[in-house]
Simulated scan of single mutants.
Amino acid sequence: MMRQGTLPLASAPFLHFARLLRRHAFAVAPEQVSSFMQAVTLLGPRSMADIREAALATLAPPPNRRGEFEAHFRNHFHGDGQPSIEGEEDEETRIKDDHGTRQEEKQTTRQEKGGELSSAIEQLSSRDFLRDDDGLGPFRRKLASTLPARRSFRTVRTHSRGKLDLRRSLREIVSADGDIPSPQLRRRQTVPRKLLILIDVSGSMKLHTSDYLKLAHAAVQGADRAEIFTFGTQLTRITSALRIRDRDQALARAAALVNDWDGGTRMGPTLLAFLSVPRFSAFARGAAVIILSDALERGDHADLETAIRRLSARAFRLSLATPLAGDPRFQPATAALRAILPDLDDLIDGSSLGSLTDFILSLARPAPASSAIWKRVS
């Protein structure tokens, strides 16, 4: 986006409006911001209606979020106060990358367990992680060689089972004065697929968050193309923090980045926010995507259903690991979980590190029949 220091002072409100839309998960490209400000310049403008029409034409809000766009426009340019948007959450979904600024943290003494106190209310807090022996060393060493692979468009030389490399073969013929040497062959490389792990850090998952972060650190250390995000009421990318080799330092850095530990959960909106950022959405394309969450979405689950459907379309394999499945009596019977089951490739037990590491190391094997996911539903 344009630097504010190189622009006239009068342009600041328009630049701030584009940033406001981005903070609320609108997909606004730098080119659109430039077009918006150029349109305002061409129109004069003579009235706020001209600015509004320029914003609609250049920033192009999706039809299903037009009402939200109008509310943010009135709030920003008319000072109508906080926008009240029917069907939207009261709190915005914030997106935080590894290098983002740290927001004010609030300490909490609220005690939650299981999924009974699942909530959509934002509650910010910090978290500390202590060292213990978790046995993740073998998982870290095996991960790179066991991830599912894909054929790259790049090629490498080979002595058998490849296609004729005509250029190298002709060069060999010329250098051998017309003699026909052994044919030169090339084949397409095989590279591991990306691994994307999305970790629910809401209050209903607090008993498992520590283990999940240790697993994520081992995944980043063991695989070159692993990406880790946390979500609760906000979305935070913590991959860079987990690249620190020392686990204590890495988890301390991650704990400092994430502000919404043990708070509420807005799974649908945060996953949609993830998909609204092109750079983040690209992480899911062709990747093995694992969501570590109990999927206890409060209220309307339409956003969750939309997000899972879009993730499934991008991913090579989409899996949900829920600690609730550790109970032999577990059935995916909630409305939200039943709605997303058709788009999942796996629904697995996420109650222990052992079950999770065994599953991740088996991702290269074909997924079971989709009917096996909900076979226990009565």
Rank of each mutant, 00 (worst) to 15 (best):
A60W: 12
E116F: 07
N75G: 07
D50I: 13
M267V: 11
G350Q: 01
A284C: 15
G299E: 13
D358H: 13
G222M: 09
R46C: 11
H72Q: 12
L117R: 14
E297P: 01
L143C: 05
G114I: 07
L9C: 13
S370L: 14
S175M: 08
L136N: 00
D260A: 10
D165E: 05
T209W: 03
L272F: 10
A12N: 12
T306S: 07
A255I: 08
V201N: 00
E70Q: 12
F14Y: 15
V289C: 08
L15M: 08
G268Y: 03
L341C: 09
A18N: 00
S34W: 06
P278H: 10
F330R: 03
T93S: 15
A339T: 02
L242A: 07
I228F: 01
G350T: 05
I85T: 11
E122L: 07
L341Q: 02
L21H: 01
I308W: 02
H217G: 05
D262S: 09
E86S: 10
Y212S: 02
S119W: 05
V377H: 15
L271H: 01
F280Q: 06
L117V: 15
L43V: 15
S182P: 01
R309V: 14
K375Q: 14
M48V: 13
S169G: 11
P148R: 08
T230I: 07
A71L: 07
D80I: 13
R225A: 12
I121L: 13
D327L: 13
A287H: 05
A282F: 11
L347I: 07
D132T: 12
M267W: 03
D349M: 06
